[in-house]
């Protein structure tokens, strides 16, 4: 924050804005009297895997939803690859929380993945063999190829999460935003998802994940963004994921012993 105020800092900050796949300035969102996210700045690093971390109700998902225009912020600016969000929608893929949709919906796995191609298909464009092939390929990447014709309600939670990831892959985006993709999934799914995300990073894509498992942060991510309504810390894991920043984000809610353990794990 401080170096943004100095002259040098402003220049650095603005350059960061232009290059960043997702830059947020002064974002405030409120669902009622209390703000869920208050005056948050975030500059996502290109080609990195960033975890958004914070206690329950800290505004992690809200930050993501406001950045995507799903909820309207009270104030603040969002730029995607240096341009307004609306101009860059085709370059973003979003994986919502699994629990946010009704899995009883009458549709098959392949149809959900094909939703990722809807910008390409337009209003009335027909689903052709190449679209189906693309969807099958994306299902294959998450290990769900054999489930293409299943009704989505017949899948386990982990399988549903993988289908959501396949839909995001079908979008062929440059920036991937995932809301709690590891919540309530089995170990095999977690491994499959992280492998796909790492392959995206290797292909030069940017990945941002709302994450709740502090124990895996150092293994999975290179950048962290700590939030508790306000921004607590932002930067490379080694610098910003420390006992101090965690204590400041979680306060008394995180036992000191846990923090010690975590800092030992990464140190």
């Amino acid at each position: 924050m401080l170096d943004l105020i100095s002259n040098e800092g402003v220049t650095v900050g603005d350059q960061g804005l232009a290059e960043s796949p997702l830059a947020v300035r002064g974002l405030t969102v409120s669902y009622g009297q209390k703000p869920a996210v208050f005056s948050v700045d975030m500059t996502v690093q290109p080609g990195a895997m960033t975890a958004i971390i914070g206690p329950n109700g800290a505004g992690k998902s809200t930050l993501l939803k406001a950045a995507l225009g799903i909820v309207s912020p009270l104030s603040g600016q969002v730029t995607v690859f240096g341009q307004p969000l609306e101009k860059q929608r085709a370059r973003i893929a979003y994986v919502p929380q699994r629990a946010s949709v009704d899995w009883d919906f009458p549709t098959r796995v392949i149809d959900v993945v094909l939703m990722g191609l809807s910008r390409e298909l337009g209003l009335l464009g027909r689903v052709r063999a190449r679209h189906k092939a693309c969807a099958m390929d994306c299902l294959n990447r998450v290990g769900m190829r054999d489930f293409a014709d299943r009704q989505i309600g017949q899948l386990s939670g982990g399988q549903q999460q993988r289908v959501f990831l396949a839909r995001a892959l079908a979008q062929g985006a440059d920036l991937y935003l995932l809301d709690e993709p590891f919540a309530g999934v089995d170990a095999a799914t977690e491994k499959a998802i992280i492998a796909v995300l790492k392959s995206l990073k290797e292909a030069g894509k940017t990945v941002v994940v709302v994450h709740h498992d502090l124990a895996t942060v150092t293994d999975y991510f290179d950048h962290v963004f700590l939030i508790n309504t306000r921004k607590v810390a932002e930067g490379p894991v080694a610098e910003s994921f420390t006992a101090e920043t965690l204590q400041s984000a979680y306060g008394g809610r995180l036992a000191t012993a846990q923090i010690d353990q975590l800092s030992r794990a990464q140190g």
Binding site: K65, L68, G69, I70, R89, I92, A93, Y94, P96, S100, V101, D102, F105, T107, V112, M115, S118, R119, L121, L123, L124, R167, Q171
Partner: peptide, 16 residues
Amino acid sequence: RPLKISTFDEGFARTI
């Protein structure tokens, strides 16, 4: 298409 997508997953529908 938009009716189906937004009935199933409104958040995703808005992002596209």
